[in-house]
Design a protein around this nucleic acid. Structure first.
Lengths: 241, 241
DNA sequence: CGATATCCTTGATTCTCGTCAAACCGGCGA
DNA sequence: TCGCCGGTTTGACGAGAATCAAGGATATCG
């Protein structure tokens, strides 16, 4: 412990944070090395299995977290069980809403997820001291709002085929944010049922549309989860753009 | 001009702001009287007709605004013309996104709208000086995000009948935020076509569902726009709650 | 190795909602 | 007063997605 502390102090950046995306694109980018050090004293990393509930619908959380890797799904449910996934979060997104109680949204690990979590109180104190941190949170919230509204267009106005193509495109662009080429290969972070809940469709319809995209050589699928997109332009045409 | 300035100084609150909702529930609540005065020097009020474009899809805006009264609709459009309304804004919401360009969302007056607008630069300077102002913006953005996600559930998982009931309920609660009783009366702020674009339906389906709600005595409609809801509980049952 | 479970695909049928078309209604100007 | 006009309602029909029901594929476990 003492040794680790010394290491940290020497390099001036906490070891835990050195390779972390949150320090660049995420909220931690707002912190000085000293503040990072201070926060990292209270932060803990953990890895959770797919299906783990990270934030309960009503369950008051005692901590916030940054996503280090993996995909988190945010969903809402109606009293009769109908479900809608209202957002996906990727590294280095911030999980939790300072100064707010949750609003009927539950967060669940879609894949294996690594998070770096801190106590509620520590974050809220640092926010009060550092306007820059709040600015980062506003930035992320605006991005989430844009994404939510994009998805509303998908949910309200696209056909089943366009919806499924839109989903594949969404994952492609988030899995490789700065992909320049026109082809990508990746694993779907969730099951057909989850995809259906994200698109406002049934599992069967999702399956049929995937089959159709495959038949038209827009994608190839290996082992149900592994997707190969030879031509992103063609896929985005199928998504309605 | 000199006289007005003196008046303002005497009362310590700019006349324009004295009766304004934004000073209580809106972003201006973050400002001291002096700051309010400073901002009000640059602010102008105007009234626009239904259909007026307030923020263009790509059009870079030079100013921000608070909504004083009326309803603003935010919408997105696909290249082939399919349209989706992604949000409604009411007084005292803040219009515009400091430090961000617009994201393919256009804002249009749904009803007659009164706004109080300020130059972009003035707001951005004040935000930098006043963390509290940014905090208010974060609050509003989080609220909009919650509303967007609620609506995603509506778009993705509700039936046409539930959607229309949800819309009536949304307007009822926003027109009378703190209505205690179980009955309300109000005017719809938009046409059947707009309602359809908000719900991801066609005009005809909206009309049919309204007819059904009327036939079942859940609502009464006068002159196409005027709605009477005798029992909000019954309406919210129809909305899927 | 076969048995079971889970997830996914495919097929047949049903039903909700979209499309197309006509009629209705209140307002307005000629 | 009439006829026109935009917004709305209503009807007939069809397409697209949901539902119901089997039938594969893959992995896990005895």
């Amino acid at each position: 412990m003492d040794i680790q502390r010394k290491d940290v102090h020497n390099s001036n950046i906490p070891v835990l944070c050195q390779a972390c995306e949150s320090r660049h694109r995420g909220v931690c980018g707002a912190l000085t090395n000293d503040q990072l050090l201070q926060l990292s004293q209270h932060s803990t990393r953990r890895t959770v299995e797919p299906g783990t509930e990270l934030v309960g619908e009503s369950l008051q959380t005692k901590s916030y977290a940054n996503i280090i890797s993996g995909v988190v799904k945010l969903s809402k449910m109606m009293s009769d069980g109908r479900q809608q996934i209202v957002g996906l979060q990727f590294a280095p997104d911030f999980l939790g809403r300072p100064f707010r109680q949750e609003n009927g949204v539950s967060a669940e690990a879609a894949t294996e997820v690594k998070v770096c979590s801190f106590p509620k109180a520590a974050i809220e104190r640092m926010i009060r001291e550092m306007p820059e941190l709040e600015h980062k949170l506003l930035e992320q919230t605006l991005t989430e709002l844009d994404e939510a509204r994009d998805w509303m267009l998908t949910l309200g106005r696209k056909t089943a085929g366009e919806k499924v193509a839109s989903f594949l495109l969404l994952i492609a662009t988030h899995a490789f944010p700065d992909n320049e080429s026109d082809s990508v290969t990746y694993d779907l972070p969730m099951s057909r049922t989850d995809i259906a809940d994200f698109l406002g469709l049934t599992m069967e319809t999702v399956s049929r549309q995937l089959t159709k995209l495959r038949a038209d050589n827009v994608i190839r699928i290996v082992n149900n989860r592994h997707v190969i997109v030879p031509d992103l332009t063609r896929l985005s045409e199928r998504a309605g753009f």
